[in-house]
Design a protein around this nucleic acid. Sequence first.
DNA 1: CAACCGCCCTGGGTGC
DNA 2: TGCACCCAGGGCGGTT
Length: 284
Amino acid sequence: MPELPEVEVVRRGLESHASGRTITHVDVMHPRAIRRHLPGAVDFADRLTGVRIDAVRRRGKYLWVELDSGEAMLAHLGMSGQMLVRDEGYEDEKHLRIRFRFADKGPELRFVDQRTFGGLALSEMVKVDEELLPAPVAHIARDPMDPAFDAREVVKAMRRKHTEVKRALLDQTLVSGIGNIYADEALWRTKLHWARPTDKLTAPKATGLLQAATEVMNEALKVGGTSFDALYVNINGQSGYFDRSLNAYGQEGKPCTRCGTAIRREPFMNRSSFSCPRCQPHPR
DNA sequence: CAACCGCCCTGGGTGC
DNA sequence: TGCACCCAGGGCGGTT
């Protein structure tokens, strides 16, 4: 569920509630939550203890905190990962995976994850295009909210590919941050079917598609992101409201808000794609 | 090398 | 009530 807008909501929450704080205790209650930290839970906790959080950053759906030790703690929320700021003594969540306590004795930071696709890891920073990134993020493309995002270059690269347009939108090495929800919404806004071949898209169409993706994610960010259930929440456990503004994703059978035709659902990469049969006809 | 497929995992929902 | 099954899905490793 968490795509760029939802991860950005979490980043902002962490920036105001975790930056500048020094970690004193780390409890890893589920090893799978740090499976990408190969040296294991003890090493993870040891290297974080006594370390201060200097900044909280994001690229696409990846989130990381810069530490005064020179490392970064990298997070990916997967489908159901949450970062929660909770007062000490607040009841443990059922799927609490990692708990952080701080020197200021203020609220804890908790990583909660029902479906365990998410996780945390410590990583070293590497320089990519004059920018320091955690090593596992080095191959992730800039997202549309990055000041250095170059839409013209992305359009060129997209039109060079031989694939379906939705696959390209979801390719995090081409443009990052877009997942199934915002891909379907951007395609609906641009009146493109997901299976349209990228190499047959005109440059204006591809440009418009990227613009639509950027706009829909900005609109979602303004209202706190998209939540269908309790799986995506901000650091205080609150849902976002953008699900009320969705035109395609999850709208199977409902009338298209543009033309009234019932929205269809089609299988796509072992999941679903939602689109309007009239506004977004199948490519020939 | 680019494209693509299957797997990782859990629990809420549904149908029998 | 209980069981089997389906579905959600980003990223990664392996295959074509």
